[in-house]
Design a protein around this nucleic acid. Structure first.
Lengths: 347, 347
DNA sequence: GGAGTATAGGCAATCGATTGTTTTCGGCTG
DNA sequence: CAGCCGAAAACAATCGATTGCCTATACTCC
């Protein structure tokens, strides 16, 4: 903008009133009585000049930006967009804007962005990013800076959080495989540096033990990220063994797709040679070849609940609950099938 | 934050210097000489107090926010995340932050967000949103507000823009189908309220005419959005006719996936009964069932170029070029096949 | 030793809006 | 007609950082 900015002072001059009067008129403050005629003069002048308030100046004065920040690990993961939309819709409806930060699964970027968000004085932060050091979060806690964790927990503290019932979801996924007759089940786990990665792997162990299926350590492969590529690399380690699995559980859908690719490369058909279950039920999974059996997570709803929680906290409303756990359920599609004779022979 | 904010004044007091000195130290201004010892005292004090500059105050004073705004039609469309990442990476590398706005294909939201971005005084805007009224853009142009169009053009003006070679892409897609022997080719076009939608349909007509294939008006179905659902609805209208197409071109990948769904429902196998080509080559298309033949668009690169263009404009650097057209090429995968005998009989 | 000058850093205006306090002015009362 | 009241709007401080300009101090040179 090379044009000089139209300020409240310009409007005041045009309407022959004091700037403070302009402010009161435009903010519809009832505290002070104003002549209807004056009010009209101000409004007309503002419109005529094309006045746009400066959110910067306003925020500086009010110490409130009406902006939320959100840290997302990777916007490329189709799991997140619906969550983001849920947050955005809710925020918008309540008069807040959203600044989105893609941390690219890097803790440096997480820290950098967090700093930026605080310097910009966002009113609160949603953290869907999972690598973040507990120390960083502890700092937020100490400063009483409003924040909500999304799809990730922290050890034992009572931070505001919207979580997924990982235990139930993993159990549903593995029960399904066991029910189909599978006994050699492989796990492509998420990074064990993340809460989600650890919880799901632990839950898998628990479930298999409960079903009396023993988990061959050679069939557990930890991916270094929640991405298709990492899933592919992890799956390759899994499928080359002397006794490959007849079914694999991927700790999220992208990992499962990576497994699919590795399987194809190894000449395995899914689900004939290898059953596959994912987690999240991200958009478009039903169109994959084959359509992915996966654990459905109410993504948009998570975003909505997270934004609700955060805004309530910001506005000092009594939080009905500090922790929301989303229910999940298995969606059976085409990537899983009963253990076949040929698979039994191989195994 | 309930804690009182640490300001530059607090640091100044702690270091026994004037606030202006603190500012100069922390901004490494060389214009004025400072005693190394003073400098050190200030830095120490700032660190000890945990001073965080207020981006708000800074921006207000400098009339610069070092923030870019980006309007995206729908973050759910996997086509956009890589573009966004390209923008974000570039912006970040140049010291800018990005505020992302999801317009949900609604022109009201577009206008609302555009207003918000201007009130927040972002330094420039990237517009990937396609519905936006030309009048709104004209206003930006008039105010000399820096902006770049991404993946959409405007009629005849010389706005900064990063475009896709739609003509070439569409020609490649349809040439491929014609080369495979298809003559009854259906088009699922994008909304004709968007430039992209119109350009691709026009290009399709031109290409088919050039190949002397006549386009049955009954085989052109316009979707009301660039979404899977809209594609599905549009495709249903197309496939129920007395003489259905043997191949379909979807104006983007999501539309193509909608076609796939409709085809499946109609009992048609892809590519055996129906060949299908999309546009964009968004992430994961290779994992669809069948893997989608589509026109590859360098998504991340588009974002990078757009951010480059915008930042150059903001910083008053001479723009080498006002308009960048990305090259595209067809990626043949599994959703297209040569016209088969059975299809010929049907047709 | 006094004028000149370089160096270090303080002073104060400014960015644009908000809001508690004060002023102004007309009208009314005693 | 002085005094008071209330409505309407002006005044001025404030949010936090930046920067052109000015000042104070010490040092140099003749």
């Amino acid at each position: 903008m090379t044009e000089p900015r139209i300020t409240i002072i310009d409007v005041a001059r045009a309407a022959s009133v004091h700037p403070s009067t302009v402010s009161r008129v435009l903010n519809r403050r009832a505290e002070l009585s104003l002549l209807p005629e004056t009010r009209q003069r101000v409004i007309t002048a503002a419109r005529r000049l094309g006045y746009r308030p400066s959110a910067l100046a306003r925020s500086l004065r009010l110490q409130r930006t009406f902006t939320l920040g959100m840290l997302v690990p990777n916007i490329d993961n189709p799991f997140f967009p619906p969550i983001i939309k849920g947050v955005e819709d809710t925020a918008h409806a309540r008069g807040y804007n959203l600044v989105l930060c893609n941390t690219e699964d890097s803790s440096e970027r997480e820290d950098a962005y967090l700093r930026v968000l605080r310097e910009r004085q966002v009113d609160g932060i949603l953290i869907a990013s999972s690598f973040m050091a507990d120390a960083t979060i502890a700092e937020l806690r100490r400063d009483r800076f409003p924040f909500v964790l999304v799809n990730r927990g922290t050890r034992g503290s009572d931070d505001l959080a919207v979580l997924v019932d990982n235990e139930k979801g993993v159990a549903a996924a593995l029960d399904h495989l066991v029910d189909l007759g599978h006994r050699r089940i492989g796990i492509v786990a998420g990074p064990q540096t993340t809460m989600t990665g650890r919880q799901r792997l632990t839950a898998a162990r628990v479930t298999l033990r409960a079903r009396a299926v023993k988990l061959d350590p050679a069939l557990v492969s930890v991916a270094e990220a929640f991405s298709q590529e990492a899933g592919y690399r992890a799956a390759r380690r899994l499928l080359v063994g002397v006794e490959p699995p007849t079914a694999v559980f991927g700790a999220n859908d992208l990992l499962a797709i990576g497994v699919l690719r590795a399987a194809r490369e190894a000449g395995l058909e899914c689900p004939a040679d290898l059953s596959l279950v994912g987690f999240n039920d991200m958009p478009l999974t039903e169109f994959f070849g084959p359509p992915l059996t996966t654990v459905h997570v109410p993504q948009r709803e998570m975003g909505v609940r997270a934004a609700d929680l955060l805004i309530a906290q910001i506005e000092g409303k009594p939080a009905a609950t500090r922790r929301v756990t989303m229910d999940v359920h298995l969606v059976v599609r085409g990537s899983t099938a009963a253990l076949s004779r040929s698979q039994q022979k191989t195994a």
